[in-house]
Structure formats: structure tokens, C-alpha cells
């Protein structure tokens, strides 16, 4: 039994008239904020092939953002390297991307505000982040969270060992959403992106289709404050990946499980329909929020390699 054709779903997301202006103003404010990047070597998590660093940089509202940075040792693979941003899921920890560096990427595991090591100044918790100050676009949690991920682009552009003409972004679930928002907001810099089971896409439609976390946070919030539905919708329209989709110009790979109870596939079809750039969509029957990763992982790796050409993969390492 099924609930119908996901591809036929019609989104309730609306495009605000000032969507681009809202984000362009935030990007301009971020660009005017000095990055102040720092790198601290982590010998414990380094190897003969890969150097690992804990990094920090400044983002909106003076919040210091953490991340992991892994790059090949020059003796293993000489620079320049393509950069790969690994953006995190909702409850998962930021990736320590050593295995990607081993393939020849200068890889960053981004920890936007609220994640461990980036939560000294902002910490709404999990559950919590999804509905934190959701009543206004200027106060909503994801306003600066999205920008924090974009600032990782500035970080890799500041690194002399990185070839800034090759910057990719990849993640699943919330990482899938951040892949899309970063590719949209930094379409001047992103070469390609791979988004699995994208979250933060058709928020209100998704919440009506599932009782799984994190969208269940929306249902809980609306149960307590039903009179705020229109206000919440107005906020979320500024943060919905469906509205970011038209800004994406780089090639994208989107993977979806047709039995995903966490991020309903209907919303992924709505998303892909809204994209105007090149996109490859892979759907996996009977798969859930895993988005068929058992079968699609190799395609994700080859997709990124085709566009970013890391030397480790080209050398067969």
C-alpha cells in the first residue's frame, strides 16, 4: 500500500517577494565580517597521509564557528587540492573527514552554531533548533545557521593549498539541506553538490506527512500554538530549500528513499522540480532516511570526483 505518487505532490511553499533581498543582505553582512580563521593541529587524529586540524572562524552576530579540517600531507599528495565541505545532519556530529582527505580533498567538517564546539553562544538543543524563535524570519534559528555553513566556503577560499575553482559540498538530511542552501547562496563558488534525503524542504507539508523527528517538533509546536500557523509559514518560506532551488547553478545529485518517514519524498520531488540547474535524482524503493546509501554511496563519490577531480582518486589511491 502506498500513499500515492510523490512526484505528483503539489507544494504549499510560497516564494516571498523579498526572498533574494533578505539573503543578499545577510550575505553582505557576513562578507563584511572578518573571518579570523584559526587552525590548531590535532596530532592524535592525523596520520602519515592526512593532517587534521580543529578550525574556528567568525560568522554572523559575532559567533565563533568550529569545524574539522583534514588535508592530504604534501608528501602523500601535493597541492593544490579541491575542497569538499561536509555539512552535518540534525542530530549527528560534524564529520571528521579524514577519509575524504585521503582521497585528495581538502575537506571541512562544518559545525554551524548550536553544534558541539560551536554552542557556547547559541544552544537551542535537539529537539529545539527546528522551532527556535520560529515566529519571525529575523529571529529564526536557521537564519545564521545557513550563513555559518556558507562561511566554510570563505574558509577554504582562504587556504593557499586549495584550488578555489573546485569546491564541492555534500551531506545527508539536514546536511542535504545545507548542501542546497550553500550551493544556492554561494553559487559564485560552489562547483557541485550531493544532497541526500534533503530536510528543511517543504517544512509544513513534511510535518503533515510524518510523525518522525525532527519534523514532529513542528507538530508539537503547532499543537501548542495553532493560532500561529500563518506566522510560522511566513517565516519558513524564507528558509525552505524549495525556494533556494532556483538559485542553484552547479550540478547537483539528489538521493531519496521512497519510504523515508523522516523527510517525506514528496518534498524532494517538489524540490527537484524547482531546480533550474543540472540535477540527477536517484530514488530508492523501500529505503527510508538512509536514502539507499548502501547502493548510492559509490555514485555520490564518483559524482563528486567527476566534478572536483581529486588527485588521490585520479591516481587510484
Amino acid at each position: 500500500m502506498t500513499r500515492g505518487m510523490a512526484a505528483d505532490h503539489v507544494t504549499s511553499v510560497r516564494m516571498p517577494d523579498d526572498f533574494d533581498a533578505f539573503w543578499d543582505e545577510l550575505l553582505a553582512r557576513a562578507a563584511a565580517t572578518p573571518l579570523n580563521p584559526t587552525l590548531e593541529p590535532i596530532p592524535l587524529r592525523s596520520s602519515d597521509q592526512v593532517e587534521t586540524f580543529e578550525i574556528h572562524y567568525d560568522s554572523l552576530d559575532g559567533v565563533r564557528i568550529a569545524g574539522w579540517y583534514c588535508r592530504p600531507r604534501a608528501s602523500y599528495i601535493p597541492p593544490p587540492y579541491p575542497a569538499l565541505l561536509q555539512v552535518p545532519g540534525y542530530i549527528s556530529e560534524p564529520t571528521l573527514p579524514k577519509s575524504w582527505a585521503k582521497l585528495g580533498y581538502a575537506a571541512v567538517g562544518v559545525a554551524p552554531r548550536g553544534k558541539l564546539r560551536s554552542n557556547a553562544q547559541f544552544n537551542p538543543g535537539y529537539p529545539g533548533l527546528l522551532t527556535h524563535n520560529i515566529v519571525d524570519k529575523e529571529t529564526y534559528s536557521y537564519r545564521a545557521f545557513y550563513i555559518d555553513a556558507c562561511r566554510a566556503v570563505d574558509f577554504v577560499q582562504s587556504r593557499p593549498e586549495v584550488d578555489a575553482s573546485r569546491i564541492g559540498v555534500q551531506g545527508g538530511s539536514q546536511g542535504g539541506a545545507l548542501t542546497l542552501t550553500t550551493a544556492a547562496l554561494r553559487n559564485d563558488a560552489i562547483t557541485c553538490g550531493a544532497a541526500g534525503a534533503p530536510y528543511l524542504t517543504g517544512f509544513m507539508d513534511a510535518a503533515s506527512l510524518t510523525h518522525s523527528q525532527p519534523y514532529e517538533e513542528m507538530n508539537e509546536y503547532m499543537r501548542l500554538y495553532p493560532e500561529r500557523e500563518e506566522q510560522v509559514r511566513r517565516t519558513l518560506d524564507y528558509f525552505d530549500c524549495i525556494n533556494f532551488a532556483p538559485r542553484i547553478t552547479a550540478p547537483m545529485l539528489v538521493t531519496v528513499g521512497l519510504g523515508d518517514d523522516v523527510c517525506p519524498p514528496e518534498t524532494a520531488f517538489d524540490l527537484v522540480r524547482a531546480m533550474s540547474g543540472p540535477v540527477e535524482m536517484i530514488t530508492s524503493p523501500r529505503c527510508g532516511h538512509d536514502a539507499g546509501i548502501y547502493w548510492t554511496q559509490s555514485r555520490i563519490e564518483s559524482f563528486l570526483a567527476e566534478h572536483l577531480r581529486p588527485a588521490g582518486i585520479e591516481a587510484g589511491r
Partner: peptide, 9 residues
């Protein structure tokens, strides 16, 4: 079961 909800591509 959650798969009874599976959407069709």
C-alpha cells in the same frame, strides 16, 4: 509499519 506509507516515485 512505516513502509505502508511508501510513496511512489
Amino acid at each position: 509499519p512505516r513502509l505502508w506509507l511508501e510513496a511512489m516515485g
